[in-house]
């Protein structure tokens, strides 16, 4: 039940995308996430897919690790798809199928396809960030981008540290969850039978030891960090200093271009490209 949740784990490779400044990657990802909600045409989705495929190829990521992150949210995608299929149509659209109050129309089919594309591309795009950036670099990036907040006394350094430790412990905690589930199963606990309520109840004997262990871990980790002189002051230095390079400039340009095309497509071309490409289908 927890098998697919290892999504978005850093995948080490030697590529220009991996070497990019985490701050630039964060901003670009943010632009991407905002941009994808402006897309209304199939052309826009195709463009986005092409962009993501290019990034995956340049970053030398195996397709499997990218798809893994989608697998984790498959349920949510399927759920929204169903809702959209029956409720997402516009009035007056041609009816394809109906049964009592449930109707599927041409426009609801289109809405559904677009919804699924949007979610899948969104998750894929966001996971590319964590796949190509080490948690420490990511945390440093967040720290740097949020540093203006230090003026109003927000503990940005601590937040960044918390973030990188949280990311670091994700695999450890999942491994532990597996172990606890196996241990409880061997004592006769049933996780895969019964209704939703029963299943939720069955998780309690997993969550409690998990929490208790996490506190113990936190305690030990605090001693280990203290022994290694942890402090969140200005005295701290960094081994890896992020620098804006050629890859950062190129990708910023590409991304801005992408963003402009998306906006043009939405507000000026108004689906013209779709009509040209797909004819009467859309």
């Amino acid at each position: 039940m927890f098998k697919d949740v290892s999504f978005g784990q850093y995948y080490p490779a030697n590529s220009p995308i991996h070497r990019m400044d985490a701050r630039v990657k964060l901003i670009i990802t943010l632009m991407f996430v905002v941009g994808i909600f402006f897309i209304k045409s199939y052309f826009g989705f195709m463009l986005t897919a092409a962009l993501l495929i290019t990034i995956v190829l340049v970053a030398k990521l195996p397709i499997g690790s990218v798809l893994k992150s989608v697998r984790g949210v498959l349920f949510i995608v399927a759920f929204t798809a169903l809702i959209n299929l029956f409720l997402g149509g516009e009035n007056g659209s041609e009816i394809l199928w109906s049964w009592k109050k449930l109707v599927i129309t041409v426009s609801s089919v289109h809405t559904t396809i677009k919804m699924v594309l949007r979610l899948v591309l969104l998750i894929t795009g966001a996971s590319l960030l964590s796949l190509t950036t080490t948690p420490v670099a990511l945390a440093d990036g967040v720290e740097s981008l949020l540093s203006p907040l230090r003026l109003i006394k927000v503990p940005v350094r601590d937040i960044a540290m918390i973030m990188s430790i949280a990311l670091r412990f994700i695999p450890t905690l999942f491994e532990e969850t597996h172990k606890i589930i196996a241990a409880q199963k061997s004592r006769g606990a049933a996780f895969d039978t019964g209704g939703p309520l029963q299943r939720a109840k069955a998780l309690l004997p997993v969550l409690i030891p998990l929490f208790v262990n996490s506190f113990r871990r936190a305690d030990e980790l605090a001693f280990a960090m203290d022994s290694r002189c942890y402090n969140a002051t200005d005295n701290r230095t960094k081994m890896k200093v992020a620098k804006i390079g050629l890859a950062d400039c190129i990708s910023s340009l590409v991304m801005s271009g992408y963003f402009v095309v998306i906006m043009l497509d939405r507000y000026f071309w108004c689906g013209l490209v779709d009509t040209l490409m797909f004819g009467g289908l859309v």
């Binding site: 850093y10 080490p12 080490t134 948690p135 420490v136 990188s164 430790i165 990311l167 670091r168 450890t172 871990r217 030990e220 980790l221 280990a224 960090m225 290694r228 002189c229 942890y230 402090n231 005295n235 701290r236 230095t237 960094k238 081994m239 890896k240």
Partner: peptide
């Protein structure tokens, strides 16, 4: 498992020296 702070080996080893500036 409870004394590594960073995800990547070299980042973790660098933790102490970074702390002492």
């Amino acid at each position: 498992d409870n004394q590594t702070v960073a995800t990547i080996v070299e980042d973790d080893v660098a933790f102490g020296p970074e702390n002492i500036g």
